[in-house]
Amino acid sequence: MATYEREITGPVGLCLPDGQVDPAAIGWSRRPLHRSSIPGWGRTKRWEYWCVTTPTHLVALTVSHLDYLALNSVYVLEFGPGRRREFERTAIVPGGRGVRLPDALAGSVGTRPLVVGPERPVRGQVRVEIVEEPGGTRLRARCPGPGRVPVEVDLFAALPDGHETLSVVVPWSERRFQYTSKHTARPATGTVTVGDDVLPFGDDAWAVLDHGRGRWPRRVHWNWGAASGRTDGHTVGLQLGGEWTRGTGATENALCVDGRLSKIGRELVWDFAPDDPMAPWAVHDGGAGQVDLRFTPFHVRRVRTDVGLIGNRTDQCFGHYAGTVRGDGGRPVAVDGLLGWAENVRVRW
């Protein structure tokens, strides 16, 4: 199903004074142009999710505020030859005390520093810092790791001049909507230290951002896939979504080839086995000619939660994409072994 989304080219507010989505905000842009302040309270979700990958290891940082609690986490996965180590630390903050996610300002994802958690975390505590610096974003984190060894993250996700990203408003109704800014193929550098082990992030390290602000339905199902790297002589970022946008007239689908964004105004088809997420996946546009991809997982990160207000069933698979994509220029780009993920999520929140 094709959509007919308009491209936004100037600053716009996300909401009207009464908290409804502003009709002028509905559309997409090549750089963040929305002021994402959401007046009032109730069913409001705010988060920052960063995942930085290399050919042998990756790290993901999450800061989220769900109205009635906050969840902040650090996730590390090693998968190089002869290495397989997975670690995750999540801090739950009832009421979201001390967690304040800044609203996005037109022209940037967020100019104010985001800092949560104590300076020297202990037990189940997590500290995450996300700070805009000239040329990109500084990502820092600390938490107790496996065997109580410290884990420290210090990475820089560059945003090269002219590098385009996808920002889009998805409206379920006047009162239920989501603003998301998805960045792919941002070159990254730095280190993640686990005890005495230093994991380097250098020439083939890539950062992906999922910045979200919105008011959500009680229950929702989504697929999300992303990947970044060099393939067929190009730097390619894949941003692929599904299910949650169906029927809204909007999608979160886009390709970034050598820094130039191509919006995909069509719902994608996701063929996979929910009960066997490690089986191969297929993601395509139904023969329209822009996306024809296969995804082969090598690891699944499973989350199962059913506590009071919150229920979460997540299978996030890390693996490699192969196939063909076409940007607005029309020339096919062969995707061969592009590292990323595909996930299937059902949530009650």
Rank of each mutant, 00 (worst) to 15 (best):
206 W>G: 02
184 T>F: 00
27 G>L: 08
46 R>F: 07
200 P>Q: 06
204 D>N: 11
323 G>L: 02
228 S>F: 05
92 I>E: 12
140 R>T: 10
160 P>D: 07
37 S>I: 12
77 L>Q: 14
288 A>S: 10
129 E>R: 14
187 P>G: 06
18 D>S: 10
192 V>C: 06
345 V>F: 12
84 R>C: 12
345 V>M: 11
118 P>T: 11
129 E>P: 00
276 D>Y: 02
242 G>W: 02
296 T>K: 04
38 I>S: 09
263 K>I: 04
161 D>E: 15
48 E>S: 07
79 F>R: 05
225 G>R: 04
133 E>H: 08
125 Q>S: 13
140 R>M: 11
88 E>Y: 02
57 H>V: 06
42 G>I: 10
165 T>D: 07
299 H>A: 11
34 H>E: 09
139 L>C: 00
154 D>I: 01
245 T>F: 03
25 A>T: 11
50 W>L: 08
136 G>A: 09
94 P>Q: 03
194 V>P: 03
113 P>Q: 04
243 E>N: 13
314 T>P: 03
7 E>P: 09
333 V>R: 04
47 W>L: 13
272 F>I: 00
248 T>V: 07
312 N>V: 15
256 C>A: 10
99 V>H: 02
314 T>F: 13
196 D>R: 14
208 V>L: 09
2 A>V: 08
296 T>L: 09
